[in-house]
């Protein structure tokens, strides 16, 4: 579904990604782990071109997103993204947050968009907060709404950029539960995370990024049970 070929990214001469190659298949749940500053978030943000790569290719469903002529907006509709800081639209109610994009971009009729939003809100346990404004929600609730906002566009893949890092500890669980359900439903997911328990339990493949390259990748068993790379071993020793 997403084919990453020799992806490179530098910021003002500083190389953050130094040639990343990987493939994300339909139904994959991939966790990206690694020390801070390793380029995990940059890698994820390159996948939907929020950061423009300085080299390499991102092939998404057969189209090269780094091609200047491609309609990025159209492709982004199929790639949901969840941010560390939620980035809900504060001037809109929860319902409006969820329906604005489908109604504007996919011309979904209002009634239909609302019905879909309510259904998904119900699934994350927030059906009663449809008329609230983001400021009235807790962090965990905001992040669940943000996940639903991305889902309302019916994406083919969901990108998560440290979705629980800005949350109070007691709210991490409710967000991870939603993500687990999503994975169980077969959604393709790429998750940048520090939640090793989640990575171990839910993902089918883990990428260990350090200093802009994938140092090791494998199943959770391989990564957590038999880490080969020395740096991965010392990273795991610190975080586990």
């Amino acid at each position: 579904m997403i084919n990453v070929k020799n992806l490179q990214k530098s910021f003002g001469g500083i190389e953050v990604l130094k040639g990343i190659n990987t493939e994300i298949d339909k139904g994959d749940v991939i966790c990206v782990i690694g020390p801070s500053g390793s380029g995990k978030s940059t890698f994820l943000r390159c996948l939907n071109m929020l950061e423009r790569p300085t080299g390499g290719q991102i092939i998404f469903e057969g189209d090269d997103l780094t091609d200047k002529k491609i309609d990025l907006d159209l492709h982004r509709q199929k790639m949901g993204m969840v941010f560390q800081q939620f980035n809900l639209f504060p001037h809109m109610t929860v319902m409006k947050n969820l329906t604005v994009a489908p109604m504007m971009l996919k011309k979904v009729p209002e009634e239909q968009a609302k019905a879909k939003a309510l259904e998904l809100l119900g699934k994350v346990g927030l059906a009663d907060r449809a008329d609230a404004y983001p400021n009235q929600l807790s962090g965990g609730q905001k992040q669940r709404v943000a996940i639903v906002r991305a889902l309302c566009m019916e994406p083919d893949v969901m990108l998560f950029d440290e979705p629980t890092s800005a949350l109070d500890p007691e709210m991490v669980g409710e967000v991870l539960d939603v993500m687990k359900k999503l994975a169980a439903d077969g959604m393709t997911m790429v998750v940048v995370t520090h939640e090793m328990g989640f990575a171990r339990e839910v993902s089918n493949r883990i990428l260990f990024l350090d200093e802009g390259v994938i140092l090791e990748e494998g199943t959770p068993d391989e990564i957590f049970g038999h880490p080969k790379n020395e740096r991965l071993q010392s990273f795991l020793a610190k975080v586990l």
Binding site: N48, L50, D73, L74, H75, R76, Q77, K78, M79, G80, M81, F83, Q85, N87, L88, F89, A101, M104, L105, R149, A150, M153
Partner: peptide, 18 residues
């Protein structure tokens, strides 16, 4: 306005003008 707002809009598929 927080830069994340533009990113959120773009990530949903909206153009910069939208």
């Amino acid at each position: 306005v927080d830069a994340g707002q533009m990113e959120a809009g773009r990530s949903l598929g909206m153009s910069r003008l939208q």
